[in-house]
């Protein structure tokens, strides 16, 4: 659920942090694929909730632009959503503050620490609209464009790339 956990930075703004994803290949790691929902509202709550007992998405059998439309209700509102797989090579993570070893003063060090670890992973996400069919024009779907843009921007340039680029320049 869209917990909106705005963990506004503790005072350690300058501190170096990291995210420990070493449990990614651990078969016992929690896989939330198919259970992660992005809702079109802000729920002022952060914590566990019996989501699957109350939130019951149903397939509509309708497909729009290749998106399979699902339907669900939350707080009396009708939501229309679709499940999209995360692109190849990417994963979603639920992360939590890294728990430091026992014995150390936990309160202080944990607060300052900017070290995180993976609590769960997921390979798909279901996003929901209020009163409108999900489509490829939705900001959420479009946000994935960044991944290919980022790839192009950050890919190291090889000598071959340079050569072909200058060749095409000359041929003009």
């Amino acid at each position: 659920m869209d917990g909106n956990g705005s963990a506004e930075g503790s005072s350690a703004t300058g501190a170096v942090g990291g995210i420990d994803l070493s449990r990614f290949d651990d078969p016992t790691a929690v896989d939330l694929t198919g259970q992660v929902h992005q809702l079109p509202c802000c729920i002022k709550y952060d914590g566990p909730s019996p989501v699957s007992h109350y939130f019951k998405p149903k397939s509509t059998g309708i497909e729009v632009d290749g998106l399979k439309i699902e339907e669900a209700y939350f707080r009396g509102r009708k939501l229309q959503g679709t499940t999209i797989p995360l692109p190849q090579g990417y994963s979603g993570f639920v992360i939590g503050k890294k728990s430091l070893g026992k014995g150390k003063a936990p309160d202080q060090s944990e607060e300052i620490s900017n070290s995180w670890e993976m609590n769960a992973k997921f390979q798909s996400i279901t996003f929901w609209n209020h009163d409108s069919l999900p489509s490829h024009d939705d900001a959420f779907v479009r946000s994935f464009h960044w991944l290919s843009v980022a790839k192009a921007l950050h890919q190291p340039v090889t000598p071959e790339d340079l050569e072909s680029a200058s060749n095409s320049q000359q041929s003009k």
Partner: peptide, 24 residues
């Protein structure tokens, strides 16, 4: 979902539950 959330009858019950904000 058996309950009609849009009914005024619900309002007093919603006073002390988690707040949910909708764009609409």
């Amino acid at each position: 979902t058996l309950v009609r959330f849009s009914w005024g009858t619900c309002t007093p019950y919603f006073k002390d539950i988690v707040e949910v904000l909708w764009e609409s």
